[in-house]
């Protein structure tokens, strides 16, 4: 008799819970757009957050609902954006601008000396808390590789000379490393056509930069005078080149006494640091 009770209680409870669940499943059904799944499959699924949403699935939800622009996925670029448009039946909108991260510092271990020996946690952000970093230069790369750790695409590696190297094949221009770098050394550049860049981040005065680093921009304005297009400006003792005005004549490269203006050309040598 006991076994009948046991059977009845267990079976009854199972039936009750099963019934409740199936009732709830119908009563509280949430309609999910099946396109969300399809869009999520197209996305890189790196969950990098460059689109402004915490993960790829959240972006997929928003884009299907029409709340996010279809070309927000930076790592996916035009290819992914076109696929999304295809799925959602929209006109293609994305431009095919290739973006990569560029390290705006040439201060290797040899040319940019240390202020003191740092034996702390091997992380740039931690090093910054200690006297504002261990390099004499207050703007340059510390070379502890916080950006390398942060990169979701394995596009960054730490070179032997103490500067990170960007693998342009892998870099998607997502900008995660830009946020990770406590010194703001990394910038995202459009590299569709060759550009000239001043590879320095030092906003210190000329003399201070000269003491801190052999390859820092001292704001001498030789490049400004040399440029026939007036594309170069010096702000805070640091030269910038306006890619819109630059006609790639190369005068500034010859004029720079510190030899820190480089050609940024995706089709050529991808490793800028090695062209020094």
């Amino acid at each position: 008799m006991n076994i009948v009770y046991a059977f009845a209680v267990l079976g009854g409870l199972g039936l009750l819970i099963g019934g409740l669940l199936s009732y709830a499943a119908q009563r509280f059904a949430v309609e999910e757009d099946e396109r969300v799944e399809i869009v999520a499959d197209v996305l890189p699924n790196a969950n990098c957050g460059a689109c402004g949403y915490p993960g790829c699935i959240n972006f997929a939800e928003k884009v299907v609902a029409g709340d996010a622009p279809v070309d927000s996925c930076i790592p996916g670029g035009k290819a992914v954006s076109d696929r999304i448009c295809e799925i959602l039946g929209l006109e293609t909108v994305a431009s095919d601008v290739r973006k990569v991260a560029v390290i705006f510092c040439l201060g290797t271990k040899d040319v940019a000396p240390d202020k003191f020996e740092y034996h702390g946690v091997p992380d740039c952000k931690a090093a910054m808390m200690y006297g504002g970093g261990f390099k004499v230069c207050e703007y340059g790369c510390l070379g502890l590789g916080t950006c390398v750790e942060a990169c979701p695409f394995d596009a960054l590696s730490m070179g032997e000379d103490g500067l990170p190297v960007v693998d342009w094949e892998r870099c998607t221009g997502c900008g995660i490393c830009v946020k990770a770098c406590p010194r703001g050394v990394i910038r995202i550049m459009d590299v569709d056509q060759p550009t000239r860049v001043v590879l320095c981040n030092s906003k210190a005065r000329g003399r201070a930069t000269r003491n801190a680093c052999e390859v820092g921009c001292i704001g001498c304005k030789a490049c400004v005078r040399a440029c026939p297009q007036e594309a170069v400006v010096v702000e805070d003792f640091l030269a910038y080149i306006d890619p819109a005005k630059c006609n790639f004549c190369g005068e500034c490269i010859d004029a720079c006494k510190r030899d820190i203006i480089k050609e940024l050309d995706l089709t050529k040598e991808p490793d800028l640091a090695k062209t020094v």
Binding site: L21, A24, A25, F28, A29, V30
Partner: peptide, 12 residues
């Protein structure tokens, strides 16, 4: 069963 039930209800 309870956790499943709560999940379904919460989702809605």
């Amino acid at each position: 069963g309870l956790v499943q039930l709560v999940e379904t209800i919460l989702k809605k």
